[in-house]
Design a protein around this nucleic acid. Structure first.
Lengths: 149, 149
DNA sequence: AATCTAAATGATAACAACTTTCATTTTCAT
DNA sequence: ATGAAAATGAAAGTTGTTATCATTTAGATT
């Protein structure tokens, strides 16, 4: 068994810090580590809580700044699902994906459809736009909630 | 020449107010009128400014409440493009549309592609989701900005 | 037309999430 | 070990949104 996914990311992060001339601190490392292990769309409050379990003295500002850094370095993606909170998600290994959000139970399901992506680029091109990134969210009822009513 | 688009909407708004047992006030009428005439994705601050030009005593809260009402009644759609502000857009006559946002000059272009919409519904269905509404935003360079570099 | 009552308004306070500031602590090159 | 530059943590400041409350107004009822 080789290196874990998280430890590979940690190496890449250290590299990134060095390139930017930033210092390698215990807090940054630990916050990044905790974040890399998440699989949900976590907000700062929740992430801070997780971090504090092992490093109780860490403040909100440090988590905020670290996530800003991880976003800049391309490790995290910021998402806003309309509830007024910014959520962070790990850059998915399997490339970009989109989201379906259940308006009843708030379940978030990820999906990917290459044909939609291609059509987006094509549609944009016709209008003279060059697409860098996009955001697609489907709101509706998940299987369970649709069944109930 | 018949009724203007705005005056038709005003009639429908009055009907809607009556149905809800709400009062028909000068402020509500004027704010709605100003909003109906906009073609951009306006935020509350900007809308308030426009309203104050003719009714200087109107407060932020009234504009806020009126837009909430117009959204409930289906006259306006709330949009969030990630800059931390809620923007309002008139319900388009030609049905739903999506947005392309230039990351350089902030230009917003609207577009519509039925095939993308169909694919969304189809993709969702495969995952047991029933789509009520969606949000699709393409971020990139507009014609002008792409040309400049 | 005057009166009444519930609703709307406008000023302002409260709130929530995000961002900055600054004194203190830590990293890391010397 | 030492010192300069950067990071941290606590707290204050921002910004946009929402709620509160005394006053005003719409519209029904005398």
């Amino acid at each position: 068994m080789g290196k874990t996914d998280t430890s590979v990311k940690m190496d890449r992060l250290n590299e990134c810090l060095e390139n930017k001339g930033l210092k390698s601190t215990r807090q940054r490392h630990f916050i990044a580590e905790v974040f890399f292990k998440t699989t949900t769309h976590i907000n700062l409050e929740e992430l801070l809580k997780k971090v504090k379990r092992k490093m109780p003295r860490v403040g909100y500002a440090t988590v905020y700044r670290t996530m800003k850094l991880l976003t800049e370095c391309g490790f995290a993606i910021e998402r806003q699902f309309g509830d007024g909170q910014t959520r962070f998600e790990n850059l998915p290994d399997g490339g970009h994906h989109d989201h379906m959000i259940c308006v009843k139970c708030s379940k978030i399901v990820e999906f990917q459809n290459q044909m939609i992506e291609d059509l987006q680029i094509e549609t944009a091109r016709k209008l003279g736009f060059e697409v860098l990134r996009h955001k697609l969210e489907l709101y509706g009822y998940c299987k369970g909630c649709a069944a109930k009513g």
